[in-house]
Amino acid sequence: MLEKNGVRIAAVSYDSQDILKGFAEKHGIGYPLLSDRDSAVIRRFGILNVNIAPELRAYGVPHPVNYLVAPDGIVIRKYFVPNYQHRVTASAVVLREFGAAGEDAATVTLRSNALTMEIGLSSGKAFAGQEISFFAKFELEPGWHVYGTPLPDAYAATSITFDDSKIVRQSFELPEAAPMKIAALGEMLPVYDGSFQGRGSLLLKFPIEAGRIVLSGRVCFQQCSDTVCEAPETVPFEVPLTIEPFVVPTPKK
């Protein structure tokens, strides 16, 4: 999924080359597993887990962080979750960076006057404590617009907020809005028209009971045409998500 989008993958741990070779063979891993035997690179990145006493086997492990790095070495984005057993999924990375949703992801379509919205998660399944992504596609009929930021108080910017009952942390980003002169007011305001898409991330709480849940949220926006400005609206929505059963991994003997 990442390869298709021109992104290669490599993993770093403090394991010996022999252990990594065995692991790659056992699990059919084709990508490079890098051996940072003395954790020197882990230290250089500043992510050595300093909570682990030197006498423990785990001494030298990093905090689990994933970096999406551009070819010139600049960090495009980084991913980390406090619950190290379940990372951000490849489908969440691909959705956030390349706009392609996972195949099992449920979407919901909403409509209000001139605006049609489709909201979907990066994947239909996730673990409690995991970070998932979501997208929102907006389509406006010709002659209509909604607002971006920054915006005077009298107007409502376009936003998506999920209810926090199942979510620890969330974000939502839209592309930069184009300035538009509002003729009736003689003001320049940031607007979106036509089709545009936003992306966000949700860090799920831990624990959440396994099974099918619903993430509910609301879209806020204000749609205006050249002649009419409607009142700000809040449209609630729900998307289904299956929480996978949490299993504490059993160690190898």
Binding site: G6, R8, A10, D15, P32, V65
Partner: peptide
């Protein structure tokens, strides 16, 4: 021996730091 130059794809590299492949 691998470095960024011979790991990266045309659009980037997902560099994953994890605790251990052994336990």
């Amino acid at each position: 021996l691998r470095s960024l130059t011979n790991l990266v794809g045309p659009n980037g590299l997902l560099l994953v730091f994890h605790r251990s492949a052994h336990w």
